[in-house]
Structure formats: C-alpha cells, structure tokens
C-alpha cells in the first residue's frame, strides 16, 4: 500500500485535534491524565483514520477490528478520536468528568460507543485481546485486535502471562502498541523498575517486534502495513513517544502524568495553539 501526502496530512490534522480536545476537556474538568493522552495522538489518529476497520454507525459490527486502550488513563485521546470518527456527538466531550455518571469518566467504559473494554486497572488489555483474537479464530473471522499499553504498565506481570499465551497460540491477528514515553506516575520507567532491553523481552516471548518513532505518521503507517511482522506470531510496535507531546510545559515531565492546565494557562495558550473557547454560549 502506498502512502500519500494527503493521507499523512489528514492524520496529522486528526492528531492535532486530538491534542486540542485533550487539553480542552481536561482544563474544563480540572482533572485528567493529560500527559499520557498527548503521547497517543498520532498512534490513535493513524489507527482510526487508516488502519482499523470500524463502522461508527454500527459500533458493534461483528467483523470490526477491536482496539483496547489498556492504558485506560489515556482515555482523553480515545474520547477525542471516537468523537471525530462519529461514534458519538462531538458535544459529548464536554461531559468528560463534569457530570455525575458521565459516559466519559476518567477511565473508559464499554457503555460509550466505540470503547471495547473497561480499562483503567493496568495489565488487563493484552489478555482481553488474546480472548478476542481467539474468538476471531474460532469464528473464522478476519478482524484484528489492537491493544495499546503504556510502558510503565508493562511492569504488571499479567502482561507477560498474556504475552506467552498469545505467542503459544500463534495469534498473528493480535497487535500490541507500547506507548514508550519513558515515564510513569512516579518517575522515568528506568528509574523505578527497568524495562530495557524491552524489544528483546518481547522477541524472547515469541513476538515480532518493530521499534519506531510513535509521532512519525509515515513510520506508523509503514509499520501497520507490515503486520504481522512474523507470520504466525503476534506483533508488537514499540512506539517511542514523548509524554505530554505538543504541550511544551508538559513534555517529558514526570509531574504531568496527572496534571492539567489552569484556566489562566489555557487562556494564555489559546491563541498560540488555536484552542477552543473553554465555554461556549
């Protein structure tokens, strides 16, 4: 498949809007995991605009590709892309953490169209994905299952149980994308519990591995086009990203895991970043 400039440009615009939406929602709500959402913008934009077979008008279409955001705290970005795709109305984004029993809570739930699994507790997504990929195989369906994990999340042992299971069953319809932004809640991952050599870990668990720049749309597209990297093996993309990407004061900063802009900071950045009005009439 050839990649066109138009395609890249469309994905870039989508990613830009993801960032603006994340900043807008979290500032209005005064809460949210902004840094971990911003590192996901190009990954999610590329997946939804060019890779995933989904039908926003029919979110439960049985043959759809599944995407599980295992790092559920990155949901600001997921809510934005789902609204951009038309899974629900754009104005619903204003409900993020502002209304009792909202459809858009601080971690995603399946009650929201387009969300495939409840996530928020780390280390669940890959095993859920294994179950879905096995169901596809049993039903002789072509759909694929994509799971996005954090990098710190990989400290949870359950991921590696599921990684072994996926490799044992040769699930080449399962793809994990690791959002390798090098940071977790408390510090850089390597200062807490070292993950490197990460690619070698996955390889030794029987996965096909690619390491790419997770903000480079062309590289993302190229990688997704090559799946499965090894026939008969599950695939993992280690996407090197920057936590807080696109919001200068947040980039690569440990304290921006769970921090948002103040109204004043938002107003100061509004023109420079072409952000929406915080409140509409």
């Amino acid at each position: 498949m050839s990649i066109t400039f138009e395609e890249i440009d469309l994905i870039k615009q989508t990613a830009d809007l993801i960032r603006k939406d994340c900043i807008w929602m979290s500032t209005r709500a005064g809460t949210g995991h902004l840094g971990p959402a911003l590192s996901l913008a190009e990954i999610l934009a590329t997946l939804y605009k060019s890779v995933l077979k989904v039908d926003p008008q029919n979110p439960k279409w049985p043959d759809r590709d599944r995407l599980i955001l295992s790092k559920g705290h990155g949901c600001l970005a997921l809510y934005s892309i789902l609204s951009q795709m038309g899974f629900f109305e754009r104005k619903l984004l204003g409900d993020f953490c502002t209304k009792y029993d909202t459809m858009l809570p601080g971690h995603p739930e399946i009650k929201l169209p387009g969300v495939e699994a409840n996530t928020g507790s780390l280390g669940h997504g890959i095993a859920l994905g294994v179950g879905m990929a096995l169901a596809a195989r049993m039903d002789k369906k072509e759909y694929r299952v994509f799971v996005i994990t954090g990098d710190g999340e990989l400290q949870e042992g359950s991921n590696w149980e599921a990684a072994m299971t996926a490799a044992y069953y040769g699930l080449d319809n399962l793809i994990v994308i690791v959002d390798r932004n090098m940071l977790q809640l408390g510090d850089f991952t390597e200062n807490i519990t070292r993950l490197e050599p990460l690619a070698e870990k996955w390889k030794s668990f029987g996965w096909g591995v690619e390491i790419i720049d997770g903000h480079d749309i062309e590289k993302l597209l190229t990688a997704f086009n090559k799946i499965p990297f090894v026939k008969g093996q599950p695939s993992v993309i280690i996407a090197n990203t920057v936590k807080g990407k696109g919001l200068k004061i947040a980039e690569n900063k440990v304290d921006w895991h769970y921090k948002v802009l103040s109204y004043e900071q938002y107003e100061e950045l509004k023109n420079e970043m072409s952000l929406e009005e915080l409140y509409h009439e």
């Binding site: 399946i110 699994a117 859920l128 994905g129 179950g131 096995l134 149980e161 599921a162 299971t165 044992y168």
Partner: peptide, 23 residues
C-alpha cells in the same frame, strides 16, 4: 478448549475477551 498455563488472571481476562465477542 484453551489452556493459558498456570495464570489464573490471564484465564479470566481471556474468557472476558471471548465473552465480549459473543462466546
């Protein structure tokens, strides 16, 4: 019939993933 090995957490999540696909 599937066997995930001695990994009860994975067993339950895998089953949940299957149930989400109608099994």
């Amino acid at each position: 019939s599937f066997n995930v090995g001695i990994a009860e957490q994975t067993m339950v999540s895998v089953a949940a993933g299957m149930a989400l696909c109608g099994k």
